[in-house]
């Protein structure tokens, strides 16, 4: 039970590194989607009896994070006609090494935190911290708007993992709300990206600083 969960979290953590190492925008989107799906089935693994609410949230998460949001992003990418190569501010190799170091740091930190006994053996906190770190790293180190959205998605995945810690005490409704916010946000960004591309002929966030005033 717990092993299966840890395996899934390990998979998600591995995907963080793949996201940091990839140089292509479509594969970055695919990785974020895959990670979302892996996270989506986690509540099913964690609970012993299957509740309808749980199932509904899992289905919603998987379909939103794994299908709808990536589709939105791909559409934005296509309509804005973006160059598919990522343009790294932090090189792929350094970001990979930083991500790995952050991951090890997250595991070490999680083992030191005063957690409830049932969470001691679990990688949940470590995975959450590592995903947040990887997301932040992507936000810092990639210049294109859509890659930043992917960083934001991975960051949110980390927060979602934190949320799973409280699966017994908080209703999954909260998670549902976050998911909705996220979808709307990505939707809006998708539209904005299109507009920006038309107005400025570039999606490099470095160039968007001229917008101040």
């Amino acid at each position: 039970m717990n092993d299966l969960l840890n395996l899934l979290i390990g998979l998600a953590m591995g995907l963080n590194l793949v996201a940091l190492g990839t140089s292509r925008l479509p594969s970055l989107i695919r990785i974020a989607a895959l990670q979302g799906m892996v996270l989506g089935i986690m509540p099913l693994v964690m609970e012993h009896e299957l509740r309808v609410m749980l199932l509904a949230v899992a289905v919603a998460t998987v379909s939103m994070k794994g299908l709808v949001i990536p589709a939105l992003l791909r559409r934005a990418m296509r309509t804005a006609n973006i160059d598919r190569d990522l343009d790294p501010l932090i090189g792929f190799l350094p970001s990979l090494l930083l991500g790995a170091a952050g991951m090890i740091g997250a595991v070490v930190l999680a083992r030191r935190l005063p957690l409830r006994p049932e969470h001691h053996e679990s990688l949940l906190v470590a995975g959450a911290l590592a995903s947040v770190l990887a997301g932040l790293l992507l936000l810092i180190g990639r210049s294109k708007a859509i890659s930043q959205v992917c960083g934001y998605l991975i960051l949110e995945n980390g927060i979602y993992l934190f949320g799973l810690l409280l699966i017994h005490s908080t209703p999954l409704l909260v998670e549902g709300g976050i998911l909705l916010d996220l979808t709307v946000a990505v939707f809006v960004i998708g539209i904005i990206v299109d507009r920006i591309q038309r107005a400025f002929d570039s999606l490099d966030t470095r160039k968007l600083t001229v917008l101040r005033e």
Partner: peptide, 19 residues
């Protein structure tokens, strides 16, 4: 230019196995 990245990935896999 991607070869170092691939080798670093192999290194990281071994590092995690080590941990």
């Amino acid at each position: 230019r991607r070869v170092p990245l691939l080798l670093t990935t192999a290194f990281l896999l071994c590092v995690f196995a080590l941990l």
